[in-house]
Design a protein around this nucleic acid. Structure first.
Lengths: 252, 252
DNA sequence: CGGAGGGTTGAGATTCATCAACGCGTGTGG
DNA sequence: CCACACGCGTTGATGAATCTCAACCCTCCG
């Protein structure tokens, strides 16, 4: 089937990067698009993974539940993001739930198509490797953050990523998800998240509703680390105190 | 060069699984073997990743350091394990340190060989995907554990994995690393780890030095979850209370 | 107008990290 | 052969920090 894939606003899905038309066609040949309402469970923990999910519109979370019903959110997806791509290759039942956060339009690529395509198209395999390692890198940050960093550092780092994502010049951005979801994703309770946001105001980061306003382009430099340096236009210039003198970073 | 790869005792490295002799030869053609002393830094945070490291003998840790020098261990490697395989595909400087824990013999496969080989051999690409997703799955467990689970549950889960790894019939196994390393890996201090081990004795799990003795094969069922069920011979039999009645699991 | 959900604020309790001291085994050097 | 130092692990007391529980506010929408 032909698909209405117009990701005009955001970049093309990383999954499809550099693929030939032929390769892409083959991949999408047996894919389907569905619309789901808010809070629809797409995958349950323990399910056999059947598809890669690509969010076209809306938002989705991946998470786990423990016996008492506490949830741990691993990823919060926006249009262009995919999930279950890593799980397909884990070999076994899905360790995660997948659920829509808002009404969403979602492309589903069958498991079998993906696995055979990996063997046929090296570029597709490379794309998947890059995607999965990106997840992994991100999860290392999560672990690192929970182990060591104070809530304010976790929130600051999250803001820094959003800021760099949006484009470094912009002094304003909005939170793309509900605060309680972000709080959970950052490994803290909504209460702690709320209190942390208040503290951020003293650092020149103003929060009103879900809109974040920065005092200047250096407001988030406190939270820079060796992994984000490369993304920052200030890096290796003398503008940024934190980059030049990493030891002055905020200790929380 | 020809390599003295005799992993007779443990399973073959997952990296080489199902590869043709030809493919394997090509991969190892430019690889080298080195011996390192304890505490040798193989990779530093910020370095450009240059090799995949395969531990032939000894043990290795991967970790991050924060500004104050606190470390977060992500993985503890034994012979047959690889590292930096995920980092190669992240595209950017290494987010982690790699350091030997004991005198170690290590095989190094150059970055370039790996990347071109992924494009040429679909089986190799699949192996890498399975390896990296396994890491990712593991890191999800780490996050999950730190978010929700009590120290005793984290230790119990770790023990369960070691137990299943060794073979389910054996009622005894040993800790393969120093306790302080394991403690850090599990996201707690050595003190907390020590205190937790004492509590485990009340659950029929006896710890003397680095030897763990189980009262019976059910001692660790308390810590089973949907991801480990599949590995457990008790699963879907009526023997295991925890598997049949997941809600009775230990709540900590 | 009233209810529901998300977000905020406050007070209290729990829990783990921190700091400090000690025990123990090992290896070394006198 | 013994003394000592060192590393690792354990134990105890203390404190800080976040989770929990509860109440409240606000906005949106029926």
């Amino acid at each position: 089937m032909m698909l209405p894939l117009n990701f005009s606003k955001q970049k093309n899905p990383q999954l499809f990067e550099k693929l030939t038309e032929q390769s892409l066609g083959k991949l999408l040949q047996h894919s389907t698009v569905h619309n789901y309402e808010t809070d629809t469970l797409l995958v349950q923990q323990g399910d056999k993974p059947q598809h890669i999910y690509l969010v076209i519109e809306g938002s989705v979370k991946t998470f786990r539940l423990d016996e008492e019903g506490h949830e741990t959110i691993f990823r919060l997806l926006q249009p262009g993001d995919t999930c279950m791509d890593a799980v397909l290759f884990m070999g076994g039942p899905s360790p995660i739930y997948v659920q829509t956060l808002t009404p969403s339009k979602i492309l589903m690529i069958p498991e079998r198509i993906v696995k055979t395509h990996v063997l046929e198209d090296g570029q597709f395999a490379t794309n998947l490797l890059q995607i999965v390692t990106k997840y992994y890198k991100n999860s290392m940050h999560q672990i690192d953050a929970m182990n060591i960093k104070s809530p304010i550092q976790r929130v600051g780092y999250y803001f820094l990523l959003k800021h760099l994502d949006k484009g470094h010049d912009s002094l304003e951005f909005t939170l793309p998800f509900h605060k309680q979801s972000i709080a959970n994703y950052l490994g803290m309770t909504p209460e702690t998240f709320s209190r942390t946001l208040k503290k951020m105001k003293e650092l020149g980061i103003d929060v009103k509703g879900d809109t974040i306003k920065l005092r200047d382009t250096y407001a988030l430099c406190l939270f820079c680390d060796s992994d984000t340096q490369a993304l920052c236009p200030h890096y290796s210039s003398e503008d940024c105190q934190s980059c030049v003198h990493p030891q002055v970073n905020y200790k929380g």
